[in-house]
Every structure is written in C-alpha cells, then in structure tokens.
Nucleic acid binder design. Structure first.
Lengths: 187, 187
DNA sequence: GGGAAAATTTTACAAATGATAAAAAATGAA
DNA sequence: TTCATTTTTTATCATTTGTAAAATTTTCCC
C-alpha cells in the first residue's frame, strides 16, 4: 500500500502539507518473528504498514494476550507513547516478513504546532483510531466469543489464514480449546 | 466543575481561542431518569458534565447493557455522531439530577478549520478519549470481572454509592447475581 | 521426503458463570 | 410511619468455559 493512500485515508491533505510528512519517512523491513517495539520502552516512531501483518500483545505471568492485529494500511502505534510520552502496554510482533513506513513522533508533533492542516490530520487520525477502538470495545462487551469469531471471519477472512489460531483465540478472549470447539460446531 | 477547568484539562488554550468556545456554550439541566440523547439519532451536541452522573447503554431484546459511566468533568459524546456524522450506539440516561455545558458540534467543526489552537485542542481531546477507551478495552480483555470490580471500587468509590448495582454488573459484563456473589466473598 | 517440533483438535473432568425463582433489604410515595 | 415497589441477595440447578493431557495434523528444517 502506498504511503499516499494511507495518509489520504485519514484526511485529504493539501499537497504541500502532505509532502512535509512524506519527505521525513523512512522505509524499514522486518522479518517474521521480529519484535517491532516493546512495552517497557517509550516508542519514538509511528509505523504505517506497507505490507505484512503484526500483532500487539502483552505478556502475563504464564502466557501472552493478543489484543490487536494490524495489516496493510493500518498504523502501528503505542498510543501511550504517542499521546502521553509514557511507556505503552504493548509488544508488537511481526507475524510475516513485513514492510513499514516509519515516521518520527517528535517531528509530527512539531508539524502539529505549525500547520493547521496537519493538526487537523492528527485530529482525524486520533478520531478514527478512537472509533475503531470503540468498535472493538463494544463488540467485546456485547457479543459472545462465537459471534466475534464469525464477525472476524466475515470482516477479515485472510486473518484466519495468515495468523495462527492460538493468537486469534487470545484475541477473542477465549482459550484455544474453546476456539476449537466453536470451529468444530456445524455452521 | 467549571467549564474553564474542563477545557484546560484537555489542552491549555490561549485565552482568545478559549473564549470562542466558551461564548457558544449553553448550560442545560436534566432530571434523574431523563434521556440526554438516543442511539437512533445523530447527535448535534457535546455535553460536558458540570455536576451529576450519567450512563451510556444500548438496548438489547430483553434488557440493556451499560458500557460507560460519566461524571463531573467527563464529556458525554456520541463518537459516531461527532466523528462521522452517523447514528451512535448509545442511549444516555441521566442517573442523578445533573447540569451540563452544551456545545454545538458543527460550530466546533468550524473552529477546527480556522484556529490551529482549537484544532490541536480537538486533536488532544480525541487522543485523550482514545487513551481512556483503550484502557477500558485492555481492562476488559485482561482482567476478570472480579478484578475489574475491585479496580472500579479503587478508582471510583463513589460510583458504587451513586449507581445501582444492576448497571454496574452490566458494565462489568456479568449478571447481577454474579456481582452479588463477588461482593459476598470475604476480602 | 523424513522426522522433529509446533500447532490444533479432541476428550474427560473441574470450576465458573448463568438462569430462574424466591427471600430479604432498601427505597420512596402517600 | 406504613405499604408497595424496586433493588439486592441467596439458593438451586443447568450450561458454558477452563484445565490438563493425549491424539492428530501441520509446519518446517535438514
């Protein structure tokens, strides 16, 4: 996915403003299994996914819990680092060999102060991430794991193929055994 | 809570910009049991809570599910109305006689276009709501209902006193009977 | 392709939670 | 205060989900 498209998906920027962001971007590649960033560090960058798939998870005493998947066009971000300059909750693991556009957060903050278009892009970006997060919260509160599994298959059929079921079970908030039971049921 | 304080909590605005928002604000009062707004309508306003307490819920076939409580200093907003001009998920019920500061969303959108400080206030506002929503999602995914009940008592001891337990049980994602069991346990 | 390791499913049993009904307690209006 | 209504708790039983371990399937290196 082109960086142009990704930026425009959020909010249509005037070319000049868009160029300010694009000229600062680095492209970086990571291999399957590598860790993009870690929960115990303040992350100084945002990554847009050009190609590939990642998961966000936190470690617990015995295992780890996946709470987000990102793929082409999605933004990988430690919200707590971005918003409050604090350590985040999440480790990000790269699940396939992947390609990213890397943007420096402090540079972005500087642009927010001096360009109203980019400030509004930043506003729209946060608003859209907010809607997505709210959707996930609502889905989690109102739907059973079975429904959410079906929802996932409908909205992200490729996810099931690209990600191992243990991660998906944890994302759905159930054990892998339960997910197997759900999958075994007719229709 | 003063409107000044509420606005500053988000992001410190220059006085002139702050005045632009404040001069547009209406104060409105609602009585216990009244509905502030409804899920099947596009909401044109944002409300800051001066005094009182409200809950957001959605109706299901047999009962309704509470998924948010707001009190003094919190913002009552239909995110989908605000961000995308769509109908929201939520009905908002006023749980105590309450006082609100009402702001018109379209006026706010106009200010975002013409004042970079207010655009950045809007950005910060969305970012902070995002962090709060993410926190709720994480708490819901990682903690048991019992833990989340304890967390609620710690962080919002007055909520337990001001809100009936049926709503709290639904907020925690369990039945009222289960909540009673949790409360009955020693320690 | 063969074999080891990892992932997934299946089974049996245990623990947690839900549904329902009814009793007890709290609240509110006359 | 009293009585009716609402809210909360308790008890019983059914269902769901988890744990642990084994069986099966898939993946991936050599």
């Amino acid at each position: 996915m082109k960086i142009d498209e990704i930026l425009d998906k959020v909010y249509k920027l005037p070319d000049q403003a868009k160029q300010k962001i694009i000229e600062s971007i680095d492209e970086v590649n990571y291999k399957k299994g590598e860790i993009l960033f870690q929960a115990d560090k303040i992350v100084q960058e945002i990554y847009f996914i050009k190609k590939g798939i990642v998961r966000a998870y936190t470690k617990t005493s015995d295992n780890d819990i996946t709470f987000w998947f990102g793929k082409e066009g999605d933004t990988v971000i430690s919200m707590r680092s971005y918003v409050a300059n604090n350590k985040g909750y999440e480790d990000i693991e790269v699940l396939e060999d992947s390609e990213f556009y890397k943007v420096d957060i402090s540079y972005l903050r500087k642009l927010f102060k001096e360009d109203i278009h980019i400030a509004n892009w930043g506003r729209k970006f946060a608003e859209q991430e907010l809607i997505k997060t709210e959707k996930r919260l609502i889905s989690r509160q109102f739907r059973t794991a079975k429904d959410r599994y079906k929802e996932l298959i409908e909205n992200n059929p490729d996810l099931i193929r690209r990600v191992q079921l243990g991660h998906i079970a944890s994302y759905l908030g159930i054990t892998q055994v339960s997910l197997s039971r759900i999958r075994a049921e007719k229709n």
